[in-house]
Simulated scan of single mutants.
Amino acid sequence: MDFTLVLEPAPEAAKAARDLVAEAFGKWGLESYEARLVITELFSNAARVSGEPVVVRVGRARGKVLLEVWDQSDEPLVLRAAGPEEEGGRGLFIIDDLVAEWGVRPLDGGGKAVWAVMA
């Protein structure tokens, strides 16, 4: 069973993404704290680079939970060290520590899907 929302790329929409994760994990009897943290970061990145609606998807297969965020930007995600004066640039390190694996794949019509498999 998959759970999907299409959200406007606005910071306040991150709560709806977290709520979707909480709903899915609740139905599966799983703790959602770390997944809510991950989806917030994925959504925030997508909302920042995309002027178009963002798709948030939560799925489960073979005992693993997959989080995905689709946006219309072709801007790549880069895992890089942020300087001490930079306000952003640390979120992917958090994701990298919390998930089993993550990556990016291009979408057929342009844009990308950023995905994470929860540990």
Rank of each mutant, 00 (worst) to 15 (best):
E31K: 10
T40E: 05
A14E: 07
R80E: 15
G29D: 09
W70P: 00
V38L: 08
D108Q: 11
A100L: 15
P84V: 06
F3Q: 14
V21F: 00
L5Q: 15
G29E: 06
E86L: 05
E41V: 04
S73E: 03
A113L: 09
S50H: 08
D71I: 04
E68F: 01
A82R: 11
A82Q: 06
D71F: 04
E34R: 13
P106F: 03
R57G: 09
A17R: 04
L20A: 06
V99N: 13
R80V: 10
Q72W: 10
G59Y: 06
R36E: 09
Y33F: 11
G111D: 08
E23S: 10
P11K: 08
I39D: 00
M118Y: 13
E8D: 05
G59A: 14
P76D: 15
A17P: 14
E68W: 02
A17E: 03
A47V: 00
G103R: 06
T40F: 00
A22Q: 15
V6R: 15
T40R: 14
R48L: 04
G109A: 15
E23F: 05
P11S: 12
A35N: 01
R90T: 12
V78E: 15
R57L: 08
A17S: 12
Q72L: 13
A61I: 01
P76E: 15
L107W: 09
L107R: 15
V114I: 15
E68A: 10
N45S: 07
L20I: 03
A13F: 02
A14M: 12
W70F: 15
F25C: 03
W28E: 00
A113S: 02
D74L: 09
W28L: 13
S44K: 04
V104R: 07
V114P: 00
I39S: 06
P11M: 13
A119R: 14
M1L: 05
K27R: 14
R90V: 12
A100F: 14
P76H: 11
E68G: 14
V55H: 08
L67C: 10
A46R: 00
S44T: 10
V78Q: 05
A17H: 03
E8C: 01
V6N: 13
E31Q: 14
